[in-house]
Design a protein around this nucleic acid. Structure first.
Length: 847
RNA sequence: GCCGGGAUGGCGGAACGGUAGACGCAGUAGACUCAAAAUCUACCGGGGCAACCCGUGCGGGUUCGAAUCCCGCUCCCGGCACCA
């Protein structure tokens, strides 16, 4: 394949013609190469090619907001450079792109329009328009996306498989409907998963969430809590692993059953079974099911009022840690199973119904929260742990709980036993747990903070949950062969925001898959994180219409080798995806349980004022403008150059011009004829080669480590070296040919259009993007002589040039010759001589 | 409070325990120009005429040698947090 490489002529005078034609004009060459690459199918991955190792390189797909912003460019173009590098390294790289197309913003736009009396806006058409626009914008990045395999999650061809998985999970007991306290976002009018509530507010709307008791669909992610804590074999940032570990929140301890005098058995979870003998009261969460039963008649009014008040309180108020403890006595008593002691049962909202069993045994002497509660309400404080080597505690006079280890006291058979988990001095906990199990009073238990994934959303623009409610058969899943349950598009949006599905008769009224009688469809849709929990499998075969995943391609291409995206998904999307992959594994659909082997996060690009870009701040930078002004290559290179990719940083409108200047200099270095008549010596040639191969070595390392900023800096330096060395004589040499070739190969992942243009201009007949990454020629790095730093007592006092092969003795001798060094050596006796090969000499001198 | 990450010129940032500040921005001077822009060249942490001295958040330590390793702090960012 041969192509014309000349840029179109646009001037009209002879002088202008000569200069204009040879200028770097990104706006001319970039569309040209994009069209050529597309026509040639240059980035279409041959999924069956087994001659090279495969590499699945995935970037998080975007929500179709309507416009690409700089953040998209920052997420995508350095990732594209890394993918291109991996391709040049001999991998068969698959680099797809698609759209996370369901979600609230499009639906909210339709509702807002409906409020204004405009009923023509529909999330489906809006989303499709936006995807078309963004696809065109994506193509201007010059990224190597394989557009032959793409997807949009809002299409029935995609979401029918969400429904299919949902039913499979339901059949396995992994999807269930349960009435529970959920987070209701009053602005977005839907429930939210715990993961979507930040500081008591809806992640999207910012509204204070309310607690509501509602029947909702859940996925049983808690079944996988233990497995999700295992990151073995994953090359992921420590930060993300820590965040997920914190979120899952594993606690080891024991459950202990307390009998209440009113009847119900009250189970508590404790991480300190070694303090059981110090339990002086119990506290139930206000929502605990046994509250009414243990409450005595004379306390009932108080308890009811307290429970009702707690229910009205917002989550954020209730969880505030500055609040004083509140509670009320139920009048009921329980019996501590280890010592038969009668203890009062209280209700207090510092106990959460969602954690453990919603009830605690309170050991005020050794727990800060229980201590505060006991002091406020005048409850007993009985120390059962004595700090090693100090006076025993006194329950009446202590001013704070003692939470450290020590020796068990007042603890019946365990008096004298050192407390602890077994990793320190004592293992009282293990001993007590063993004893509890023996007595049948309790057992070892691991509790997690992680809650089941609440997947129902009371919204229209999402995957319909494929369940029906039949008067005869109860809750029934749709038959797999009747999928998809199509989301009707002929709907009217309510100004109230109420889901149109609630009012769509032909959707609502269906036949029961079991008995054929009338049944009502579930009108809740799925959380859009369902869509993104398996989409990378679907990219492999997006058109497959009889099953969700092509198992042959999945076996070869998954797990994803490299996944990149923002840190904001550290918990939500990444945890759900790990969970879902394990479910797919257990359903027998895939052969692995971890979706993403290597994870890298990019940071956030801020406005030039250092604040988050937003229209209201007026600090938004529009990538379309930048591309028009500087070219896509310049935007790419600048975003890579700005600093470490995982750090992000403010946009600097002046600094991008430095990168633009660099690209222009690259152009002129390889296009403009040399004007120097200087002769070229063998030494000059060796110097040029050394610079080129040294740069290659460094840039290779940079790409391996996702250090795009230093890769660009290296190329800037090399351009400077080449421009300085350039002469008519040098241009005639093979060294120059090689230098240009290697430079363009290294530039290709960063500035793919410019590299391609210069590649063809230098006589190539096939794309630079089909080339292999070059090897470093070690012999080019060798030198005859080397400059060493000479230190005296660790301070630099001179430099010395020695033959590369010089012996230590020769080096030391040469170093002593340096005039300045000699002055310092005279000030004392040389105690030590240290030679670091290739680096330095250090003399230790003492007077 | 617990966990993780960070602090280097005017700014963004470089630096396997071995010349701190690569590369870029900004700045200064010069060349080109009638002039400016663009471009090119040189300089560009602080102090000092200089030799040198000081300098990587703070205080110690290890080492021939520390931005880098260890101990103790300060501040900043992120996660978790009345989670029993």
């Amino acid at each position: 394949m041969t192509r014309a490489a000349a840029t179109p002529y646009e001037g009209d005078g002879m002088t202008e013609r000569a200069t204009e034609q040879d200028k770097y004009q990104p706006t001319v060459i970039e569309p040209k190469w994009q069209a050529t690459w597309e026509a040639d199918g240059l980035y279409k991955t041959d999924m069956t090619d087994e001659s090279r190792p495969k590499h699945y390189f995935l970037t998080m797909y975007p929500y179709p907001s309507g416009n690409l912003h700089v953040g998209h460019w920052y997420a995508q173009t350095p990732a594209d450079a890394a993918a291109r590098y991996l391709r040049m390294r001999g991998n068969n790289v698959f680099f797809p792109m698609g759209f996370d197309a369901f979600g609230l913003p499009a639906e909210n736009a339709a509702i807002k329009a409906a409020r204004d009396g405009d009923t023509s806006v529909h999330p489906a058409s809006l989303t499709r328009q936006r995807m078309a626009k963004m696809t065109e914008q994506f193509k201007q990045m010059g990224a190597m996306y394989d557009w032959s395999r793409t997807l949009a999650t809002c299409e029935p061809e995609y979401y029918r498989w969400n429904q299919w998985f949902f039913i499979k999970a339901y059949e396995r007991g992994l999807a269930y409907r349960k009435e529970s306290y959920v987070n209701w976002d009053p602005v977005d009018r839907t429930v939210l998963a715990n993961e979507q509530v930040i500081d008591g507010r809806g992640e999207r709307s910012g509204a204070l969430v309310e607690r509501r008791l509602m029947p909702q669909w859940h996925f049983k992610i808690t079944d996988y809590a233990e497995e999700l804590l295992d990151f073995d074999g994953l090359d992921w940032p420590e930060r993300v692993k820590t965040m997920q570990t914190n979120w899952i929140g594993r606690s080891e301890g024991a459950t202990v059953t307390f009998a209440s005098e009113a009847g119900p058995q009250l189970e508590v979870f404790t991480t300190r079974p070694d303090t059981l003998w110090g339990a002086t009261f119990m506290v139930l969460a206000p929502e605990h099911p046994a509250v009414a039963e243990v409450t005595t008649d004379d306390q009932r009014a108080d308890v009811d009022a307290y429970v009702e008040a707690a229910g009205r309180m917002s989550e954020i108020d209730r969880q505030s840690d500055t609040r004083e403890k509140t509670g009320v006595f139920t009048g009921g008593y329980a019996v501590n199973p280890v010592n038969g002691k009668r203890i009062p049962i209280w209700v207090g909202d510092y106990v959460l119904v969602t954690y453990g069993s919603g009830a605690i045994m309170a050991v005020p002497a050794h727990d800060e929260r229980d201590f505060a509660f006991a002091r406020k309400f005048g409850l007993d404080v009985i120390p059962v742990v004595s700090p090693a080597g100090s006076e025993p505690l006194d329950g009446d006079s202590m001013t704070e709980a003692y939470t450290g280890d020590g020796v068990m006291i007042n603890s019946g058979p365990f008096d004298g036993t050192p407390t602890g988990k077994g990793d320190g001095a004592g293992d009282g906990i293990a001993k007590v747990v063993a004893w509890l199990e023996e007595q049948g009073a309790g057992e070892r238990k691991v509790t997690y903070r992680l809650r089941d994934w609440l997947i129902s959303r009371q919204r229209y623009w999402g995957t319909p949950i494929p369940m029906l409610y039949c008067d005869q058969c109860g809750i029934v899943p749709e038959k797999l062969d009747r999928l998809p349950v199509v989301l009707p598009e002929d709907v009217a949006f309510m100004p109230t925001g109420d889901s149109p599905l609630n009012h769509h008769e032909s959707f609502l009224n269906a036949t029961c898959p079991e008995c054929g009688g009338p049944a009502k469809r579930e009108t809740d849709t799925m959380d859009t994180f369902m869509d993104s929990s398996w989409y990378w499998f679907r990219y492999l075969a997006p058109d497959l219409d009889d099953r969700p995943i092509d198992e042959t391609l999945a076996k070869r291409w998954t797990p994803v080798d490299t996944y990149t995206g923002g840190i904001e998904h550290a918990i939500l999307h990444l945890l759900y995806s790990r969970f879902f992959t394990k479910v797919l594994r257990d359903l027998g659909l895939v052969d692995h349980g971890e979706p993403f082997l290597r994870l890298r996060n990019q940071g956030m690009i801020l406005g030039s004022d250092g604040e988050k870009m937003s229209k209201s701040r007026g600090n938004v930078v529009d990538p379309d403008d930048l591309v028009e002004r500087y070219g896509a290559d310049a935007v790419r290179a600048y975003l890579m150059f700005i600093g470490p990719w995982d750090q992000g940083g403010p946009w600097n409108p002046k600094a991008i011009e430095g990168v633009v200047r660099f690209l222009h200099r690259v152009w002129s270095t390889f296009v403009d004829p040399a004007d120097s008549d200087a002769a070229v010596s063998d030494e000059d040639l060796a110097d040029v080669r050394r610079s080129v191969h040294q740069t290659l070595e460094n840039v290779t390392e940079d790409f391996d480590g996702f250090q795009f900023n230093t890769a660009v800096a290296e190329l800037m330096s090399l351009q400077g070296v080449l421009a300085k060395a350039k002469s008519k004589a040098l241009e005639a040499t093979e060294v120059w040919q090689e230098s240009r070739k290697l430079f363009l190969l290294m530039l290709a992942p960063i500035a793919p259009h410019l590299a391609e243009e210069l590649w063809f201009r230098s006589g190539a007949t096939a794309s630079v993007h089909l080339e292999d990454w070059p090897d470093v020629d070690r012999s080019a790095l060798e030198t005859d002589s080397i400059t060493l730093v000479v230190q005296v007592n660790g301070k630099v006092r001179g430099q010395v040039e020695v033959p590369t092969a010089a012996s230590q003795a020769d080096i030391i001798a040469a170093a002593k010759q340096d005039e300045n060094v000699a002055r310092y050596l005279e000030q004392g006796d040389i105690k030590r001589e240290i030679v670091v090969p290739g680096k330095l000499v250090n003399f230790v001198v003492k007077a």
